[in-house]
Simulated scan of single mutants.
Amino acid sequence: MQPLSKRLVVNRRGSTVWDVRTPVGRFAVKLGYRSQSHAWTALAPAREAAILRQLNGTDDIHCGEWEEGTWSAQPWWEGQSLFEVWEPHRRSGVSTAPNLAEALSCATALADLHAAGWVHGDVQPNHFVMGPTRTALIDLALAQGGDVPQNYDFSYRGCLVHYEAPEISRSILETGIAAPTARADVYALGASFFISATGRRHVPYPDDASREEQRRAIVDSPHRPITVRSPLGPLIEQMMSRDPADRPTALEVCGALRNSS
């Protein structure tokens, strides 16, 4: 089918994403290929498509192979990322507290995924797309929880380090792989709230630090003081506890946000 239009949205680390309009709808088209540091990126689009089919039970998610990896096409989610929506809170001199209803919409999307038996493994602000009616949690290529075709599967080797929980970073440093968990997702959600509201990573390290140095800082250093105005601030503090057992579940985060509204 000949597209009506296409727009490059992402081009980095073994993946390109296109916004493609066709006569039958608008799609996010992803192309995966080997990057300099990762081979799994070539398989990521097809792996995500297999997960989305299980979660959504729909036939409008497509995938296949091309000469450098795999591709997928899925319905486009309209909206802005959490990081974009909370940009006003990062401006110098702005003292307004983040909108709790917006935070709740993100926590609800994560809680729904967990209730379906999956963990995301790559929670970050840009993966929450806040639309006119609800917030979608996208980019599930690293999710764990169900069957994935063996020829598209790969080991979990962490996510964008800015949002990794200490236990995930420690496992990557010690063994090269980790097991994503719902509690690690909650930590990442807290770190996503924090950076979206303040512009600061949860743990300080130089901008040019290697991934190993970033993970070592997360393992060895406490997170930054939570300066987000209450009532979200104390909740982020709980979500980013170094002990996974002390973190609330995503569903409990939803309850706390509803009670604070």
Rank of each mutant, 00 (worst) to 15 (best):
T227W: 04
G25I: 06
C106G: 01
A245Y: 02
A184H: 13
W66Q: 00
Y152S: 02
D19I: 10
F27V: 00
A191F: 02
A109G: 06
W118E: 03
S105N: 08
S192M: 07
A49C: 02
N56K: 15
R211P: 07
V203W: 08
R47V: 06
P45K: 05
H127M: 13
D60H: 04
P3L: 14
Q214A: 15
N11F: 02
Q80T: 12
I51T: 14
E67P: 00
D207N: 13
F83D: 11
Q54R: 08
G69T: 04
Y152E: 04
I236A: 00
R201S: 10
I195S: 11
R157P: 02
N56A: 15
A39F: 11
A101R: 13
E48A: 13
T22M: 07
S196Q: 00
S95Y: 02
I195W: 00
L173E: 09
G199A: 11
L100M: 07
L52T: 03
Q36A: 15
A101Q: 11
S171T: 12
D220G: 11
R7L: 15
E102P: 03
Y152R: 13
S192G: 02
W66C: 00
S171A: 15
V148F: 04
F154A: 08
L110F: 11
V119D: 08
R211S: 09
A143Q: 12
M240R: 15
A141C: 09
E65K: 10
A107W: 00
R242Y: 11
G176D: 06
A136V: 15
A188Y: 01
E65T: 09
S15Q: 12
A107H: 03
H202E: 05
R242S: 15
Q80N: 05
V17W: 02
G233Q: 07
E174C: 05
L232E: 04
V24P: 02
S92H: 10
Q80R: 15
G121D: 10
Q36S: 10
P166V: 09
M240I: 15
G255W: 07
V129R: 14
T198W: 00
S15E: 05
P45V: 03
H127K: 14
N126I: 01
R157G: 11
L31A: 13
Y156K: 12
V85I: 14
M130G: 00
T16L: 05
Y156M: 13
D153R: 10
Y33L: 09
R229N: 07
P206K: 00
A179M: 10
F128P: 05
Q214K: 07
R211M: 04
R13L: 14
